[in-house]
């Protein structure tokens, strides 16, 4: 609940950029992993999923933040879920209208955005405590960070698994695709490799692990 006497801190660039890398929802906070692994077998799917998530994240966080003084504390989680479910139903119908092909590829995972822990987590941890403008900017940053992570995974998986990027042939036809990369195990292995690489770079740079101080905080704050 917002405290009316507390002075709002001004909106800075940090609010926006935090979600992009420093608190990247996937690589640092490990939130919303299900769509991350399930739909990233090509860049196209990753982008579509990322955009759909940004839409739901920004709209629902804006609404939660606007209504934060009216939602009774006891039923807040239920209210948030209903708000999120409304926007997801919208996205579901919009994607169906724009491209049925894409809709069939993403399957149930569009509807499963409802239970993406990232969205509920941000609503609970940020939008319910901060002003409208700040929530919109922060959730936009988080959404972009989420999309970035999806594309990073999807790019590697499509490149190695099909020899393509966004549908364009990258390697010559002699390239033997690593089919396992676009199958389920590839998702886990590519995400694991990205995490290893990020940990390594972070350790070289600062001498400590990026995940260390956030690990305990995340397991509690996961949703």
């Amino acid at each position: 609940m917002a405290n009316p006497t507390k002075k709002e801190t001004p909106i800075t660039m940090d609010v926006f950029t935090a979600g992009l890398w420093k608190e990247n929802p996937v690589f640092v906070m490990m939130l919303g992993l299900c769509p991350v692994l399930a739909v990233t077998n090509s860049v196209e799917n990753s982008l579509a999923m990322g955009l759909a998530s940004i839409f739901v994240l920004v709209c629902s966080n804006a609404l939660v933040s606007a209504l934060r003084n009216f939602i009774p504390k006891q039923v807040r989680i239920t209210t948030y879920i209903i708000i999120i479910a409304t926007f997801v139903t919208l996205v579901d119908y919009i994607i169906q209208a724009i491209s049925l092909d894409l809709y069939n590829k993403l399957g149930a995972f569009i509807q499963l955005i409802v239970v993406n822990c990232l969205i509920l987590g941000r609503a609970e941890a940020y939008a319910s405590k901060n002003s409208f403008g700040k929530s919109v900017i922060s959730s936009l940053g988080m959404g972009l960070g989420f999309t970035l992570a999806l594309v990073m995974l999807g790019g590697v998986r499509e490149l190695l698994g099909a020899g393509q990027f966004l549908g364009y042939q990258v390697f010559s036809t002699n390239f033997q695709p690593w089919v396992v990369m676009i199958l389920p195990p590839g998702g886990f292995i590519v995400l694991g490799s990205w995490l290893l690489l990020i940990n390594y770079i972070e350790q070289r740079k600062t001498g400590k692990l990026i995940a260390e101080d956030l690990a305990s905080h995340c397991s509690v704050n996961q949703h």
Binding site: S193, N199, L209, E212, A215
Partner: peptide, 12 residues
Amino acid sequence: PNITQAAALSMM
């Protein structure tokens, strides 16, 4: 090794 801490190794 240090860098496999947190979730990286679990994912592998």
